[in-house]
Design a protein around this nucleic acid. Structure first.
Lengths: 187, 187
DNA sequence: TCTAACGCGTGACAAACATCACAAATGTCA
DNA sequence: TGACATTTGTGATGTTTGTCACGCGTTAGA
């Protein structure tokens, strides 16, 4: 299990065994069952997660209790309510399992300690943050420039596996359309 | 002019005079006139910009030559086509002056060199990247959860100054609605 | 294995928004 | 100042999407 985290990090930087032990000591390994929450709206002390296996959804519940899916996250991705994580405030979003999921989690304190104690990891985390920023920019672009149908087609092209693992109601929520509209788009 | 950049960085980390000189040597100062392009679609070697003064728009032109405004950027912000900047690929977006604008620009090579030569700056840039990621997440949330009218009200509340500096056509493009719809929302 | 919950499609209708067309007001610049 | 472009509002109309309602097959759990 540790090996997966190590391989993931070593795609960007190289680590000695001692260095990896140091890294690992800043994380906790945890397993969650389908439907369990890693983060619940209102939580303080929000962690950041590296996903070893499984599938999660990051959701925002609006004032009418409608669920909006901000992102799906799967194997080899990092996820959190980054607003809460980085600003050390209460969670405005929730992170919930769609499938049984194994993760390594890190607190913001340990995130900062790790950056301080191992410069290489700060470099790694900068790369990851930049990638996250890019992914968000792409999603903004899709909302600005594409119709619901086009966003549907783009998602089908870029992440076909999601269509096997996630039901239509959640796909609709991710695409920002109603379940009924999605049903009509795909038929 | 250098002082502005230094103050901006020293909100996060402290620098000696020598360190700041080192930092500065990685940037170029440039001035642009209204309507000039800092980045044009298709450019290679896209730089990243710290905005000393002025106002920019980051735009995406779709296949029908419709202009979509991905973001506005003003004094004390960082801006680029981050997808092109970080992945070292051709620009898919353009960055254009709405007002005369002064910037410090940095290439991706110098960005990386700076990270390597001054760890403190890597820390600073990680903070900035995380902030950028957060801003993007907020914008995604606004598209997922809010109507055009709500996005209009939110923008008016969070950035009232934009309404003085930017015409309605551009505001509409930023909000993702037609000019006519925006005109009806605001009346 | 029985039952309630869930997933998914679809019809009918309403609301939101885009598009096209036009006119008035304002800004720009030689 | 005059000519021209830009900005903005608004009416008419069509398209897209949301909402509500319903049925039916599948799934999950006691």
């Amino acid at each position: 299990m540790h090996q997966k985290l190590r391989e993931h990090i070593e795609k960007v930087i190289t680590l000695t065994d001692d260095e990896f032990s140091l890294v690992l000591s800043h994380f906790h390994f945890r397993s969650f069952k389908k439907k369990e929450f890693l983060i619940s709206k209102g939580d303080s002390n929000v962690d950041c997660y590296y996903i070893v296996s499984g599938l999660l959804k990051l959701i925002y519940d609006d004032e009418n209790a409608n669920e909006h899916i901000v992102s799906f996250s799967m194997e080899d991705w990092w996820e959190s309510d980054f607003i809460a994580f980085f600003t050390n405030t209460h969670a405005t979003m929730s992170l919930q399992c769609i499938e049984d999921t194994d993760v390594f989690c890190i607190s913001i304190e340990n995130y900062q300690k790790l950056c301080d104690s191992l410069q290489k990891m700060e470099h790694f985390l900068l790369k990851k943050s930049n990638s996250g920023h890019i992914a968000s920019q792409r999603r903004i672009l899709s909302f600005l420039t594409s119709s619901a149908k086009e966003r549907y087609d783009l998602l089908l092209k870029q992440h076909p596996s999601l269509f096997q693992r996630v039901n239509k109601t959640m796909l609709a929520s991710y695409l920002g359309v109603s379940r009924e509209t999605l049903s009509r788009l795909s038929s």
